[in-house]
Design a protein around this nucleic acid. Structure first.
Lengths: 214, 214
DNA sequence: CCCAAATTACGGGAATACCCGTATTGACCC
DNA sequence: GGGTCAATACGGGTATTCCCGTAATTTGGG
């Protein structure tokens, strides 16, 4: 919204990247320049030569040498001010977590995106907020939380609020052993290492996809 | 972006609400109708008569009878499809948590907002995504996480990843008692009830404000 | 009516975390 | 050079959770 943005697209597919470039150039009041890089080297060169605001990075980018993850991490290390929006064909639950939590990516978009969504993501990210595509969020949610039953979710929610197993048992008029079992099952279903990790995962997902919360 | 939105503003201040109404009506291609309600009763009537897409709700709304929280909760109960964007003068850390986690609010905006930000929030929320103002996020972050030291954050992060105290101690080459102390201090600083709750809070904040993560 | 899934629950021991307090070191600041 | 704070660490006891397994009862579809 303030000054026009400089954008770099890091993407294997020439067709896709040029298409996106053309689309973005339709909005000169928001976007002043759109560069395209087709490999890792080119991406780094461009980043060093121009002060890029936003990097749009294909996750399946240049899969032979480095993957998108590695590139995202390296870019964040060397150019922490550059905001990254990640593109993906098929969203994976693990990718999402790592990208946001560990690497610090700001945006996550599905490739079958419309112009509106793309621009929105860019603007949102440019202003310091984060953006995650709702389709992706839905996919992520479906992926694992479908398996968690209503009662289990209830207990996880109470855990997140800081209740102990005992307190939950009392509150729900069930045995502490039942609470224990529910937690155990959740932990297994979600591949959590322990309760603390379970809650970490839970809160992440809940934040990512608020629609189906509880 | 699809069909024009119907918006309801629930706000005490006639001046503010009318101003916002006028602003929003400048964009007929996005927003088809903007209603204003000045008390709780009026809000409910409007919600029952018109199928509102987005409710913009002042948190300090009608503080005599119900507060914004109660209203948000009631609206979500009776009209779960209505997306809520909350307005606030001074963001409070607790408010934020409760609104998003418990009530399921979709947006959080500071009152000294620009037109651009407001529209962006509305569009983002309309499409099923969530929006939190970056100023608010920053304020929230500053509020409490300033007190948490680097080492403490490091340990909290490892906890979130599912490591036990023992594992963290080994990884950082420190005693388990030190890890324990760090956790204890964090828990106190953030008013967490226990480690699980601490991580719940941590992950929420980290998601809300990704900029300063770790 | 039966089956799969959800919810309930227990035993028993090992492992961890929690809670009190106390205390030493080193860094940085006025 | 004294104050504050971060980071380190311990003792000792209590409370809680975790991990095996097992299993009775609902409950909701088909």
């Amino acid at each position: 919204m303030d000054k026009p943005l400089k954008i770099l697209i890091a993407e294997d597919s020439v067709i896709f990247s040029q298409g996106l470039q053309q689309l973005l150039l339709q909005y000169p009041e928001k976007i002043s320049a759109v560069f395209v890089a087709h490999d890792y080297q080119e991406t780094l060169v461009r980043l060093s030569e121009t002060d890029i605001d936003i990097l749009i990075l294909d996750l399946n980018f240049e899969s032979t040498h480095f993957d998108g993850f590695t590139i995202a991490r390296k870019v964040k290390e060397n150019y922490p001010l550059v905001k990254i929006i990640v593109l993906t064909q098929q969203a994976k639950i693990d990718s999402y977590e790592i990208l946001f939590s560990e690497i610090g990516v700001q945006g996550y978009l599905d490739k079958k995106l419309g112009v509106g969504e793309t621009l929105e993501a860019i603007e949102t990210v440019a202003e310091g907020n984060t953006y995650a595509d709702k389709n992706i969020k839905a996919m992520l949610e479906i992926g694992r939380w479908m398996e968690i039953s209503k009662r289990e979710k209830e207990i996880v929610e109470l855990l997140a609020q800081g209740l102990t197993q005992k307190e939950i048992a009392d509150k729900l008029y069930i045995s502490i052993r039942t609470v224990e079992t529910h937690i155990k099952n959740c932990t297994q279903k979600l591949d959590a290492r322990n309760t603390v990790n379970l809650i970490s995962i839970y809160v992440s997902y809940k934040n990512a996809n608020r629609e189906g919360a509880l």
